[in-house]
Structures are given as structure tokens and as C-alpha cells.
Design a protein around this nucleic acid. Structure first.
Lengths: 252, 252
DNA sequence: ATGCGCTGTATTATTATATGATACCTGCGT
DNA sequence: ACGCAGGTATCATATAATAATACAGCGCAT
């Protein structure tokens, strides 16, 4: 079928099984056999066998009456294993907790994943949209505070390449998609050591981020704080939030 | 190899791939090829092909120098999909946030998963051990506050079966493993509508839980709060924490 | 330096095993 | 009562996973 990857070290059956798992997302919270077949593009019979296997192995729950499949608790167990495998999580967690208590605002550990930012751990302190309160969400890196502050640590060519090539997508009507503007913002982040963005992914949300650097000065992660623009302005953010964020990021 | 499950609807290759993923846990945060082979019991060649496939599909990161495999960010994306698929998470999140702010203590959404409790979302408010601060952790249901309060909602026979059959394992030297005692505690939970346990999974930790019931009175989930026994005693917990927990659980 | 052992990589013949077409069953709506 | 959609079960076929084997790289000890 898929003609590429005719490598003998590539197990296409397993790859197909993974496509079943990845068919579930924000909009597809439960899927029928035929739904899975449509999304994955796999044969109905294949989906039947693969989904059945995933079910027997505890990776998919199956509603006995609707026969629809759903992600199982095992998906959370995998995340749990991830948290242990990422050394930054254990190091950052106590500082994140302190920060969230001190600021009374949502703080996140964000990491670079390809050209996107993934929120690895989130400590929501105020009611917000659901997507912003659970870990694992990914968003384009370029227009977000965490992304900008990470890119700002890159050597010049890599930084330019990111600004030129990385994908952006408007999530709100105010998402910055102009690459000239993004370049300026990233340059600013390089100078000041932080980035503040507004209305990028969610309207009314301000993001503040500081990079977590390795000893060589490079960065793949950031500490990020999300606040409401109804309660905060940039001046107050700079005086009341930034110093704490900076300190936490620098001691990691 | 595995002689059972010779069902034509069972794709053993996929099942083997899943075993690779599940080889990672608290103690195995990164694994070499041979390490994977040992843990999974699979042939070295199979592991090579399966791990390679998982790597190419973005499910495993590979350290280019040590050649060791690690969980990838994709594992968090799966958790993200889970959060959307579980309707309880979206309903509970705002209440959990309010609770954590009001109490200033760690609150969790716990669900029953077989004979174990899985912490689905966690809002840590005080520094604690790492395992207690990230979602996805599972523990035996019987001795934990959340487990007891859930089992307490079961009809008599199911409750008895759980107390008799479900697995328990001592995590601390004070973990309750005596089933008579557990039966009493669960009966107490049925009467009072809540459960309070001490030193069950972590020394110095007190757990308080209230069940989240469906209209028919059954329960598969609980709101749980963890506090330190150095700062709290049962009387103060009952007066200052319980009413809020109860309220949150009852309105879900 | 030399050789050994360990771990990861690549290749191959063999056949086990995934495939997808097909037929059957069930429940729902008309 | 009927047709249809979605889920389930069966089966012949050849694709694609298997595991044995050989090769390469690295560290370690002699």
C-alpha cells in the first residue's frame, strides 16, 4: 500500500496501529470502526483487527452498546512514564509549584517539539479554556512566548531558518503570522531574555516566557506564565511576574 | 511464540509493539536495544525492527550517541487526547481549580481503573514527592481514600468481591493490607460519604476523598485531596476541607 | 598494541501471519 | 416489512514479519 519505507526494518503493521491511536484528538473523542477507517485511510478489515487488538491489550476502551472506541487509561500511564523520562520535569516541578503559589497565576513548563511548543506540565490557577488547562497540548512555536524565547537562544543561522521555515497558523484573529514581525519579537526576546505575547492562541490571554538554558546557552524549553489581559497589563507583568519567572528559569 | 490468542482478529505484531512502549516506567526511563529485549522478552531482531519503527513514527526518541530509546513528546499528545475523550475531566477541571485555590492544597481527580486508582488530573499546591505531582500514576484502589469511597458506592456483592479479591501491595510500612480493616474503612466511607486515609502510599500524607456519583448512585471516580500530616489533623480536615470537597463532588 | 566481549546494525531465506474480499448478522429508520 | 449502515466472522493468498546470522564499532583488559 504505502510504497515508501520498504525497509525491512520497518514494521508497517505497527505503524498502522499507531495511526489508529493518533486518530483520536480534540474533535474525535470517540470513534466507530468506520470512523477509524475513514480517518486513518486503512481498510475496514485492518481497522477491525488493529482496533480489536488495541482493545484486548487495554489501549482502547470499547463502549459495549455503541461499539465505539475511546482512549483508555493506558494513555495516561504512558504520559506518566514520559514524565519520569524527561529529567527537566522533575527538576522544574518544585519551582513551578512555588511560582504558581506565589503568583496565583497559571504556570507551564513548555518544550520545543519540532517546530511546535508542547506544554509538558501545567499548573492552572484560574479558570480558563479547557485546552489551556491540560498538559500535552501543542501549538506552533513561532508566535508563542515560549517559542520565541527558545528560538532567541539559537545561533543566528538556525534562528533565521526557524523564522523563515517554521509553520505558523492563526488561532485567533490576532495571531501574529507576519514573519518580519515575528523576527523583531524574537530579536527583542534575545535582548531582554523574555517574551510577552498577547492574543496568540486564545483571545484575552497574555503569555510570558523565559528560556531554560543548558550550560552552552542553548535552549529547548521555557517556563511560561499565562494571565488574563483583563487583569494584567505589561507594566505590571514586568514588575510583578517577570522577576520571579526569570529567577526560576535561570536556576534550572 | 505466544501460543494463546491465535485469533485471526488479533494482530500480534501490534501487541508486541505496545510491549515496547510499556517497557518504560519509573525505573526504566531510557532503554537500550538489549534492555528492551530483556524486559519485553522479545527477540533482539524483533525489538530492533519494532523500536526502529516506533522511532521513525515519532513515538520514541533515540539518543544519537548512546543509541538509547526514550519516550517522546507523542506520549503527552496521547494523554491530551485522553483528556478530551473523558467527559469528566472537562466537567471537573474548573471545580478542581477553584478547590485548589480555596484550600491551598493538592487536589486530584481520581478514577477507577480495574482494581487500581489512576490519578487523571493533579493540581499540586505544595512541594511533594514527584510521583504525587504528575498525572497518570496508578495505585491499588483498596487502601487509598479515593478507592475506598468509590468501592463504598458499589452494591453489597460487588463491594464484598472487591474487598476479597482486589490486589493490595504495601507501599509504606503503614499501608493497610488487612482486608478486615479495609472492609471496616469502606463501610465507614459508605456511611459518611467520605474516606480519610493516612500513610498509605507516602509517609506523612493524608488522603481525603469524596465520590463522584452518576445519577444511579454508582461511582467510578472521586475528588481527592492530599495534605501533609505535619500540618493537618483529622478534625481540622473535617471542618476546613471536607465541606468543600463534598460540595464539589456532589455537583459533578 | 592486540584480542575479547558487548551492543547496535544490516542481510537473508523461510513461513508464519497480516491482508482484504466476501458473506453474515444485527439494529435502526422509513 | 424492508433496506441500509455498521459491526462481525471466515478464508485463500501472498505479503511482510521473523529469527538466524554475519558484520561493524566501541570499550576494556591483557
Amino acid at each position: 500500500m504505502t510504497e515508501i519505507k520498504q525497509n525491512t526494518l520497518f514494521v508497517s503493521t505497527l505503524a498502522k496501529g499507531l495511526r489508529i491511536l493518533q486518530a483520536f484528538d480534540e474533535t474525535h473523542t470517540s470513534l466507530s470502526l468506520t470512523g477509524l477507517a475513514q480517518i486513518t485511510g486503512l481498510d475496514k478489515s485492518s481497522v477491525q483487527r488493529l482496533a480489536n487488538t488495541l482493545h484486548l491489550e487495554g489501549m482502547l476502551d470499547k463502549d459495549p452498546v455503541t461499539r465505539r472506541y475511546r482512549p483508555s487509561h493506558a494513555w495516561l500511564s504512558l504520559a506518566y512514564s514520559y514524565f519520569w523520562s524527561d529529567p527537566l520535569v522533575a527538576r522544574a516541578m518544585p519551582k513551578l509549584i512555588d511560582l504558581s503559589q506565589r503568583l496565583g497565576e497559571t504556570v507551564n513548563l513548555a518544550e520545543l517539539s519540532g517546530d511546535r511548543i508542547i506544554y509538558v506540565t501545567r499548573l492552572p490557577c484560574t479558570r480558563t479554556v479547557f485546552a489551556a488547562s491540560v498538559p500535552g497540548r501543542t501549538v506552533p512555536a513561532l508566535p508563542t512566548s515560549a517559542g520565541q524565547v527558545i528560538i532567541a537562544t539559537f545561533p543566528p543561522e538556525e534562528r533565521a531558518a526557524a523564522i523563515r521555515d517554521w509553520h505558523v497558523k492563526a488561532h485567533t484573529r490576532h495571531t501574529t503570522i507576519d514573519r518580519k514581525t515575528l523576527a523583531k519579537q524574537i530579536e527583542e526576546a534575545a535582548k531582554t531574555g523574555h517574551a510577552i505575547t498577547t492574543d496568540q492562541m486564545i483571545l484575552g490571554e497574555i503569555g510570558i516566557a523565559c528560556a531554560i538554558c543548558t550550560p552552552d546557552g542553548q535552549s529547548r524549553a521555557a517556563i511560561q506564565c499565562s494571565v488574563s489581559s483583563h487583569h494584567w497589563d505589561k507594566a505590571r507583568i514586568r514588575s510583578e511576574i517577570l522577576p520571579w519567572l526569570m529567577d526560576a528559569a535561570n536556576t534550572l
